[in-house]
């Protein structure tokens, strides 16, 4: 499958300056692309647009030639966020957080090192590293075709970071999921990606 952004422009509100201007990008599902861009480029915004959380002002996001917004139900482009504590419902136990995903296999849950006991806890009762594992599992549902990872390991210690990425690389490889990784660490992207994309501000 091909994920494509065609001439996207975007701004928050009406008065603020453009974040993305006539931006185009393309990747295939066997690729692992790393995104490097200066701060304020709009990397997070780009991920939000690609996964359908924001609509671009101009341009379109296509998945195999069809607009992403036309896929009803589960979105095949899933995003993992930088701050896991902000994207889980504090009133749900972690077991239910996992159920928000699309039929998550036990293999994934075990592969990410999620322990049975953690599932009974509330988000406030587990650490950030443990919560990020749940968020990654939740994004790896059955119908996921593209995975957008926005600085997903900045708040993790090195060993957890390495554990999670090693699992993710194996998983996306065997399921042919396209991976887009945003990180400020060149060494990390060098390690995990097949292609690195340096973005310059175009406006």
């Amino acid at each position: 499958m091909v994920l494509e952004a065609k001439n996207i422009s975007f701004r928050y509100g009406k008065e603020t300056s453009r974040i993305l201007n006539d931006f185009s990008f393309q990747m295939e599902s066997h690729e692992r692309v790393g995104i490097v861009a200066s701060s304020g480029f709009g990397k997070t915004t780009l991920c939000k647009i690609l996964s359908g959380y924001e609509e671009p002002d101009h341009g379109e996001v296509l998945l195999d030639g069809k607009a992403v917004s036309s896929y009803k139900g589960y979105c095949p482009v899933q995003m993992i966020w930088q701050h896991p504590e902000q994207v889980v419902n504090p009133r749900l136990r972690m077991r239910e957080v996992l159920n928000e995903g699309d039929e998550i296999e036990d293999r994934i849950i075990q592969g990410l090192g999620i322990e049975e006991d953690w599932k009974n806890r509330f988000p406030a009762e587990i650490s950030g590293g443990e919560m990020q594992r749940f968020c990654i599992a939740r994004a790896l549902g059955r119908r996921t075709r593209f995975l957008l990872a926005d600085e997903i390991s900045t708040m993790l210690d090195l060993i957890t970071q390495s554990q999670i990425w090693n699992f993710l690389i194996k998983e996306v490889e065997c399921r042919e999921i396209g991976l887009l990784a945003v990180s400020h660490s060149p060494a990390l992207l060098e390690r995990i990606c097949t292609r690195i994309c340096h973005l310059e501000k175009s406006c």
Partner: peptide
């Protein structure tokens, strides 16, 4: 920790 650095092999150990 040292071995888990991306530039030093990116190895990990099991567990939390």
């Amino acid at each position: 920790l040292w071995r888990a650095l991306p530039q030093n092999g990116f190895q990990f150990i099991e567990g939390v």
